[in-house]
Design a binder for these strands. Sequence first.
DNA 1: AAAAACCTAACGATCGTTAGATAGGGCTTG
DNA 2: CAAGCCCTATCTAACGATCGTTAGGTTTTT
Lengths: 187, 187
Amino acid sequence: MTTNSREAILAAATLSAQAHGYLGMNFRDLAAEVGIKAASIYHHFPSKAELGAAVGRRYWEDAAVVLEAISDEAPDPVEALRRYPATFRLALQSGNRICLFSFMAAEFDDLPDVVKTEVLAFADVNVAWLTRHVSAAGLAPAGDSEARARAIYAAIAGAQLVARSRSDVSVYDALIDGYRAAGLLPG
Amino acid sequence: MTTNSREAILAAATLSAQAHGYLGMNFRDLAAEVGIKAASIYHHFPSKAELGAAVGRRYWEDAAVVLEAISDEAPDPVEALRRYPATFRLALQSGNRICLFSFMAAEFDDLPDVVKTEVLAFADVNVAWLTRHVSAAGLAPAGDSEARARAIYAAIAGAQLVARSRSDVSVYDALIDGYRAAGLLPG
DNA sequence: AAAAACCTAACGATCGTTAGATAGGGCTTG
DNA sequence: CAAGCCCTATCTAACGATCGTTAGGTTTTT
């Protein structure tokens, strides 16, 4: 292949994990998507657990970049918080997928340890960003910023879950509107 | 067995589905839990899909009963809404399990149709109860009761997910407190 | 004796994984 | 410059485990 196979495998594995979870992701379908055979994946990743961990790591690294981009584009913390829910919209819209975390949090107890670590890191990255902006926006009373950040993050994870069960992005949008109307998110 | 095997299978299957999902639930472990062999399950349920559907149906039927009991014990709708989050706490506390819906909503696209139907019914039962009480409590502006009910339900599903990933019920409690502080749930 | 409940044994599919062969590009060396 | 070699990337083929499921026989209950 002219392009990097390792990257193609990571990309296909990410999509598969968002649609079918870690358990539902399998080497044969993955390889077919990339255009190689299942055994060839082992030339790039030593095991499914390590592939899953690599997917998770890349996922939160990318998320960190996206979140910083939002902060840069929207210096006003309230405006940045308004844009936050949209980062989880794309996956739902394209293939009724959900955030890696939301799926793997459900599967958590059956996940290899190396995967668990990366999944939790994704939540940490999001909560840290949210805490910073909730604090700057004065959205919650002093000292309650992190608690509010965690609440926002969990609520959005739930919204993805519910929207997926209806195979309808507009359900996600309506739930986010509901969070805004209730005061959880800035209107 | 002196007790009803069909009920024992349903009970074991419910616990397994809450811990491992529909995909992660398997006949051999299930049978071992009940004290029979895997093939014997087919004397009670024609297939895994039908067992899953039976589990889902029983699950929302039981939920409907529990919710009506709350309404009866707490005639004040605000008080009933205050008690609502506790109904999802028990599973987390005992075995780090989550609500059937929360797990199967993630797996949704890979679920047999008969199972999908019952999973959605669970959400409908909860949203209907919540809508009624949100409306009676005047928690949301007129006409927004159902939207608020959906928001509450999704937020609680997300809280379970996050709490499970930390294997810590107190994370769930803290998130519910966060929802209350934000005004999503009545304080 | 009939029916319900359960068994053993196995089938075919799918899974992660491994062993071993092959093809080709780039490097070293005579 | 050409010959030899190694490294990367891929392949075919298969292993052992696990899965849902089925056929057909045995036990238990009524």
